[in-house]
Simulated scan of single mutants.
Amino acid sequence: MDKDSLASIGQRIQKARIARGMNQTELADELGVKPQAIQHWERGTAQPKTSRIPAIAKALSVQTAWLLNDESDLSSKPDNSSISHDEEFILNQYRKMDSTRKKIFEDIASVLTNQDSDSAK
């Protein structure tokens, strides 16, 4: 991969990470790498292992093809344009949670949703 390709992959990783409201350390923790690896990828001084690309895409909620593609594919970028500011805030907070907190949040949301649908009857 040439230097321009390294930089563009790094730029897309950074763009998606910021869109998710994550910092480099949070992404590194989710991927099981050191924060310095994320820094190098985003600066274009190193590239992630090919085998790691699907995990990066999953962690950033983007398609693998978008990370690897030199051309912007708007359909595979994070798209929060159809949700309200409040929904986006909740989504970003959820994405920052560890798996235990996500489960608690999901349980609470389930109870509240069932309660709302029960009260509408």
Rank of each mutant, 00 (worst) to 15 (best):
A46H: 03
A46I: 00
A46D: 13
Q47R: 12
Q47C: 15
Q47T: 14
P48T: 02
P48Y: 05
K49D: 15
T50K: 07
T50Y: 04
S51Q: 10
S51P: 04
S51K: 12
S51N: 14
S51H: 08
S51E: 15
S51W: 04
R52Y: 01
I53N: 01
I53F: 03
I53T: 02
I53V: 12
P54E: 01
P54D: 06
P54H: 03
A55D: 15
A55F: 13
A55K: 11
I56P: 05
I56T: 06
I56H: 03
A57P: 07
A57K: 06
A57R: 00
A57L: 02
A57G: 11
A57S: 10
K58N: 12
K58W: 04
K58I: 06
A59M: 10
A59Y: 07
A59R: 01
L60W: 07
L60R: 00
S61N: 15
S61L: 10
S61P: 03
S61T: 07
V62E: 00
V62C: 01
V62P: 02
V62R: 00
V62W: 00
Q63F: 04
Q63V: 11
Q63P: 02
Q63S: 14
T64A: 12
T64E: 15
T64D: 13
T64Q: 14
T64K: 13
A65L: 14
A65Y: 09
A65E: 13
W66R: 02
W66P: 06
W66G: 09
L67M: 08
L67I: 10
L67N: 07
L67H: 06
L67F: 09
L68Y: 05
L68S: 05
L68I: 07
N69C: 14
N69S: 15
N69Q: 13
N69L: 08
N69T: 13
D70E: 11
D70F: 09
D70Q: 09
E71I: 10
E71A: 15
E71L: 09
E71W: 02
E71Y: 07
S72T: 12
S72E: 15
S72F: 10
S72H: 06
D73F: 04
D73P: 01
D73N: 13
L74Q: 15
L74F: 13
S75Y: 06
S75K: 12
S76D: 12
K77Q: 14
K77D: 11
P78C: 08
P78I: 11
P78V: 12
D79Q: 11
D79A: 05
D79K: 11
D79N: 15
D79S: 08
D79H: 09
D79G: 02
N80D: 15
N80A: 14
N80Y: 14
S81H: 06
S81N: 13
S81G: 01
S81F: 03
S82Q: 14
S82A: 14
S82D: 15
S82V: 09
I83V: 13
I83G: 01
S84I: 00
H85F: 10
H85R: 05
H85M: 06
H85I: 10
D86I: 00
D86T: 03
D86W: 01
D86S: 06
E87C: 03
E87P: 01
E88S: 03
E88I: 00
E88N: 06
E88R: 10
E88H: 04
E88Y: 04
F89C: 03
F89K: 09
F89N: 08
I90V: 09
I90K: 05
I90P: 00
